[in-house]
Design a binder for these strands. Structure first.
Lengths: 186, 186
DNA sequence: CCCAGCATGTAAGAGGTTACATGATTGC
DNA sequence: GCAATCATGTAACCTCTTACATGCTGGG
């Protein structure tokens, strides 16, 4: 039930259409939450039916019609209600870890391209977040932006962690290539 | 489709019953994958029907009957097939980030207990992983254990990252308490 | 003219969560 | 005797992913 509330927060920050939200979630604020446009449209319909948000149709000036959503009093109340109930920290669930452990039963070398791809993706995300950091969060920040920055920082921290970890894992896999014994040093 | 393969890897490492797998996933190797026993039983049935795994019933010596599963040739082949197809790095999806950004529209103080709870959970996990590290991964390691250790290291790295981030976020929220202006420094 | 991008959706199916259900054993 | 733990499952529900579907606009 968190996508609903992620959308509420995004709409409080800036009233938007579904498409616009999808684009923001895909691109710049991917460190905040990730969702596809299909999910977003479904949840927006549901929330409009519950009167958490209200639509204002901007008939096609140049582009096709777009429905811009704003959060209602009810939506705001619902967000606060949800924020008051505790959530548990999430558990791990990453297919790459499964593959790494599985590599003991197959050809570890085959994982090298995959890890290199992951490394590249995380490096890209990191530079993207750094650009946002320099552009939007330099100097004095009000509360809202200080909080947004703190969320961005988690993105930066984790991408950096991923990068370093990918390097380590690649070193390990490469060490297997040059060392055919069953024993290797940690 | 990754839980199936996570179970295959776990069963290759050590043939086990559903209950045993659930306990391991809940406790020690939570850094590897997280799943509930209901999910595990459902997937085990499915995989047994597909002949990826085979059951051997250990009739109750002291405890109730337990079905110990082993991976078949077909299961092993399926795992290798799956490992060869690429996966994309995952996107962010953490309710805590939503709440932090949402705090700009409610009472930021209310998040302090939540963040403290997260910090405590991550600290617990970290010490748990450190114990496993010292117990199982000290000294010379063969390939299988070197790979398992690399996976554990991701758990350690991320729990550490979370801890530091929680500290930072708590500092930020506390700074709001003592500073009622709308502007604060980054 | 055609393709890329804007903008909105529907439908089917896989995966995950929560609640319920059963029965035996060990420890207090 | 009762509660906790072992050990197995079923059923209902919700969420998420993937594929499909429509129509408009602007640039090469």
């Amino acid at each position: 039930m968190a996508l609903d509330h992620a959308l509420l927060v995004s709409l409080l920050e800036k009233p938007s259409s579904g498409y616009e939200l999808a684009r923001r979630f895909d691109r710049s604020i991917g460190y905040f939450w990730h969702a596809t446009h299909q999910q977003i449209y479904r949840v927006l319909s549901r929330m409009e039916a519950s009167d958490w948000i209200a639509a204002e149709v901007h008939a096609g000036e140049t582009a096709p019609d777009s429905k811009v959503f704003t959060v209602t009093k009810e939506g705001r109340a619902e967000l606060l209600r949800w924020m008051a109930e505790p959530v548990e920290p999430e558990g791990t669930r990453d297919a790459l870890m499964v593959k790494l452990r599985g590599a003991a039963f197959g050809a570890p070398d085959d994982l090298i391209p995959e890890l290199e791809h992951h490394r590249a993706t995380h490096a890209n995300r990191l530079t993207c977040y750094r650009v946002i950091e320099a552009r939007d969060f330099a100097g004095q920040l009000d509360r809202q932006h200080a909080l947004q920055y703190q969320v961005l920082k988690s993105g930066i921290r984790f991408e950096q962690g991923w990068l370093e970890w990918c390097e380590e894992a690649l070193d390990l896999l490469h060490s297997f290539k040059h060392n055919n014994s069953t024993r290797t040093r940690p």
